[in-house]
Amino acid sequence: MILTVTPNPALDLTWHVEHLAFGGSHRADAGTARAGGKGLNVARVVHAHGVPVAAIATVGGGTGVEFAAELSASGVPHVLVEVAGATRRSIAVVDEQRGDATIVNERGVNPSDAEWAALLAEVVERLPSASVLVISGSLPPGAPDQLLPVLIGAGRDGGVPVIVDTSGPALLRAADAGASVLKPNAAELAEATGIADPLEGATSLIDRGVELVLLSLGAEGMLAVTASGALHARLDAPLAGNPTGAGDAAVAACAVLFAEGERDSERILRRATAWSAAAVLMPLAGEISDTWPELEARVTVRPYSPKDPE
């Protein structure tokens, strides 16, 4: 079973418009509202592929009621920890003409120490049945600095590999705490490490003890960096669509392969790139196109050098 933890879940609101004009008004068909946050998007993709998964997240307030109802209807196995603060919202406006999305994320409300302890207890209870632990998404402002290290430590103590997708100082704390895999994008990596070069930045995380860094480069593909070197994967042509769940699909691919015992970085990179691309083709985060095997066949992988496109 793959266990996902979403420390700062959101009710995802998505609208599609023909063309987004800043400062203008727009008409759109009815938008969608679904339980989101990066860990839940990972869980949705994993569940859709028939792999056992359990998603753990917090929930609270009026938005939390809608969040919980939609998640129950989705069929994704989950555990929700009740908190006092309202579940935040994330708004995505997809520009169909440009093939991209503009996103506004509320920051979220920090749970109390007792509420965090309740979430940790749910994680610890399920770790004996887990093959992989995924901790994915932002942390609410004011979250304890030790939250990620404690969660990662619980996984390591249980002999479970831990995949983390987060940003800011939490990314470095996850590296130092012994995360097996980190999945930042280029901007998140540069912000966290202060290193502009993506290979140097990823290598600095490897030097902290991380086994594998999967680094999203947007339309330029993805890097897999290990202690033995770096590989660069990309499609033969970029895809237009909704990129909001692309990184989560990459994490899902890595988690599924890790659960199968796969550790070959090239195979993981190829699958992660294909699933990431397949997510861009779907209207909502947490889904990937059934054409992902065809996309995987179009992925080229080669050794990475700083002269490659970033």
Rank of each mutant, 00 (worst) to 15 (best):
residue 209 G to T: 03
residue 166 T to M: 10
residue 216 S to T: 06
residue 208 R to W: 03
residue 188 E to Y: 05
residue 230 A to I: 05
residue 168 G to M: 10
residue 217 L to F: 11
residue 186 A to W: 15
residue 175 A to F: 04
residue 172 L to M: 13
residue 165 D to N: 14
residue 217 L to Q: 12
residue 152 I to K: 04
residue 159 G to Y: 09
residue 161 P to D: 07
residue 196 A to H: 11
residue 172 L to T: 07
residue 143 A to W: 05
residue 179 A to F: 00
residue 216 S to W: 07
residue 225 V to P: 04
residue 207 D to S: 13
residue 186 A to Y: 13
residue 145 D to Q: 14
residue 203 T to K: 14
residue 223 L to Y: 10
residue 155 G to D: 00
residue 144 P to M: 10
residue 200 E to A: 15
residue 172 L to R: 14
residue 201 G to P: 05
residue 191 E to P: 10
residue 213 V to R: 14
residue 219 A to N: 09
residue 191 E to R: 15
residue 196 A to I: 11
residue 176 D to C: 06
residue 219 A to K: 15
residue 208 R to N: 00
residue 149 P to H: 03
residue 178 G to W: 02
residue 225 V to D: 00
residue 214 L to A: 07
residue 211 E to N: 11
residue 189 L to H: 02
residue 150 V to P: 00
residue 158 G to I: 12
residue 181 V to I: 14
residue 157 D to R: 15
residue 220 E to D: 13
residue 213 V to C: 04
residue 172 L to K: 14
residue 211 E to D: 15
residue 182 L to P: 04
residue 229 G to Y: 10
residue 180 S to Q: 04
residue 143 A to S: 15
residue 189 L to G: 06
residue 182 L to K: 08
residue 170 A to K: 13
residue 201 G to S: 15
residue 227 A to Q: 13
residue 222 M to G: 03
residue 201 G to K: 10
residue 167 S to W: 03
residue 168 G to T: 08
residue 218 G to C: 09
residue 169 P to D: 01
residue 156 R to D: 02
residue 142 G to V: 14
residue 201 G to V: 08
residue 204 S to F: 08
residue 215 L to D: 10
residue 150 V to N: 03
residue 214 L to C: 08
residue 205 L to A: 08
residue 193 T to E: 06
residue 166 T to W: 04
residue 206 I to H: 06
residue 217 L to V: 03
residue 145 D to Y: 11
residue 202 A to W: 14
residue 169 P to Q: 05
residue 209 G to Q: 01
residue 227 A to V: 11
residue 212 L to Y: 09
residue 215 L to H: 07
residue 193 T to I: 06
residue 223 L to T: 01
residue 201 G to L: 12
residue 166 T to F: 01
residue 221 G to W: 14
residue 163 I to G: 02
residue 221 G to Y: 10
residue 194 G to P: 08
residue 205 L to N: 05
residue 159 G to Q: 07
residue 207 D to I: 05
residue 186 A to G: 13
